[in-house]
Protein backbone atom coordinates (compact mmCIF):
# COMPACT_ATOMS: atom_id res chain seq x y z
CA UNK A 1 0.00 0.00 0.00
CA UNK A 2 1.53 3.25 -1.14
CA UNK A 3 0.70 6.24 1.00
CA UNK A 4 1.27 9.58 -0.72
CA UNK A 5 1.97 12.90 0.90
CA UNK A 6 -1.63 14.08 0.51
CA UNK A 7 -2.83 10.99 2.41
CA UNK A 8 -0.28 11.60 5.18
CA UNK A 9 -1.59 15.16 5.51
CA UNK A 10 -5.20 13.97 5.53
CA UNK A 11 -4.54 11.33 8.20
CA UNK A 12 -2.48 13.76 10.28
CA UNK A 13 -5.41 16.17 10.18
CA UNK A 14 -7.81 13.44 11.32
CA UNK A 15 -5.37 12.59 14.15
CA UNK A 16 -5.00 16.31 15.00
CA UNK A 17 -1.22 16.16 14.70
CA UNK A 18 0.55 18.97 12.88
CA UNK A 19 3.27 17.74 10.52
CA UNK A 20 5.86 19.82 8.72
CA UNK A 21 6.46 19.18 4.98
CA UNK A 22 9.73 17.36 5.84
CA UNK A 23 7.97 15.17 8.41
CA UNK A 24 5.19 14.40 5.94
CA UNK A 25 7.79 13.33 3.39
CA UNK A 26 9.52 11.00 5.87
CA UNK A 27 6.21 9.59 7.12
CA UNK A 28 5.17 8.83 3.55
CA UNK A 29 7.92 6.22 3.32
CA UNK A 30 7.57 4.90 6.88
CA UNK A 31 3.81 4.46 6.74
CA UNK A 32 4.02 2.83 3.30
CA UNK A 33 6.62 0.35 4.57
CA UNK A 34 4.51 -0.60 7.60
CA UNK A 35 1.31 -0.96 5.55
CA UNK A 36 3.19 -3.03 2.94
CA UNK A 37 4.38 -5.32 5.70
CA UNK A 38 0.92 -5.85 7.23
CA UNK A 39 -0.41 -6.58 3.73
CA UNK A 40 0.69 -10.23 4.25
CA UNK A 41 -2.49 -10.76 6.29
CA UNK A 42 -4.21 -10.97 2.89
CA UNK A 43 -2.79 -14.52 2.62
CA UNK A 44 -4.95 -15.68 5.54
CA UNK A 45 -8.39 -17.04 4.71
CA UNK A 46 -10.78 -15.43 7.19
CA UNK A 47 -13.97 -15.98 5.20
CA UNK A 48 -15.90 -17.78 7.95
CA UNK A 49 -14.07 -16.43 10.98
CA UNK A 50 -15.54 -14.15 13.62
CA UNK A 51 -13.37 -11.29 14.88
CA UNK A 52 -11.97 -11.91 18.37
CA UNK A 53 -13.61 -9.85 21.08
CA UNK A 54 -12.47 -11.44 24.33
CA UNK A 55 -10.17 -14.09 25.82
CA UNK A 56 -13.05 -16.13 27.21
CA UNK A 57 -16.80 -15.81 27.19
CA UNK A 58 -17.77 -13.23 29.72
CA UNK A 59 -20.83 -11.00 29.90
CA UNK A 60 -20.12 -7.31 30.26
CA UNK A 61 -20.99 -6.35 33.81
CA UNK A 62 -23.80 -3.86 34.28
CA UNK A 63 -24.57 -1.45 37.05
CA UNK A 64 -27.39 0.82 37.97
CA UNK A 65 -27.30 4.16 36.16
CA UNK A 66 -26.69 6.47 39.08
CA UNK A 67 -23.99 8.78 40.35
CA UNK A 68 -21.71 6.94 42.77
CA UNK A 69 -18.77 9.31 43.02
CA UNK A 70 -20.10 12.81 42.52
CA UNK A 71 -19.06 16.27 43.62
CA UNK A 72 -15.41 15.98 42.65
CA UNK A 73 -15.28 18.74 40.02
CA UNK A 74 -12.21 20.19 41.69
CA UNK A 75 -10.33 16.93 41.31
CA UNK A 76 -11.43 16.55 37.70
CA UNK A 77 -10.07 19.92 36.61
CA UNK A 78 -7.03 19.79 38.89
CA UNK A 79 -4.56 18.89 36.12
CA UNK A 80 -6.03 21.08 33.39
CA UNK A 81 -3.74 23.70 31.84
CA UNK A 82 -6.39 26.41 32.14
CA UNK A 83 -9.61 26.52 34.20
CA UNK A 84 -12.07 28.94 35.73
CA UNK A 85 -14.64 28.06 38.41
CA UNK A 86 -14.16 24.34 37.74
CA UNK A 87 -14.65 24.77 33.98
CA UNK A 88 -12.06 23.88 31.37
CA UNK A 89 -11.03 26.91 29.32
CA UNK A 90 -10.50 26.60 25.58
CA UNK A 91 -9.96 29.14 22.79
CA UNK A 92 -13.17 30.71 21.51
CA UNK A 93 -15.10 28.23 19.36
CA UNK A 94 -18.26 30.16 18.41
CA UNK A 95 -17.98 33.67 16.99
Amino acid sequence: MKVDEATVRHVARLARIKVTPEQAKALEGELSAILDWVEQLGEVDTANVEPMTRVEEMALPKREDKVTEGSIAGQIVKNAPLTEDNFFLVPKVVE
Binding site: L41, V44, T46, V49, P51
Partner: peptide, 14 residues
Protein backbone atom coordinates in the same frame (compact mmCIF):
# COMPACT_ATOMS: atom_id res chain seq x y z
CA UNK B 1 -10.01 -4.37 5.58
CA UNK B 2 -7.60 -3.71 8.42
CA UNK B 3 -9.00 -3.76 11.95
CA UNK B 4 -11.69 -6.41 11.49
CA UNK B 5 -9.32 -8.50 9.36
CA UNK B 6 -6.67 -8.34 12.12
CA UNK B 7 -9.24 -9.26 14.79
CA UNK B 8 -10.22 -12.28 12.69
CA UNK B 9 -6.57 -13.31 12.48
CA UNK B 10 -6.53 -13.05 16.28
CA UNK B 11 -9.36 -15.56 16.45
CA UNK B 12 -7.25 -17.95 14.35
CA UNK B 13 -4.20 -17.42 16.58
CA UNK B 14 -6.35 -18.12 19.63
Amino acid sequence: AYYIKAQKVRTLIQ
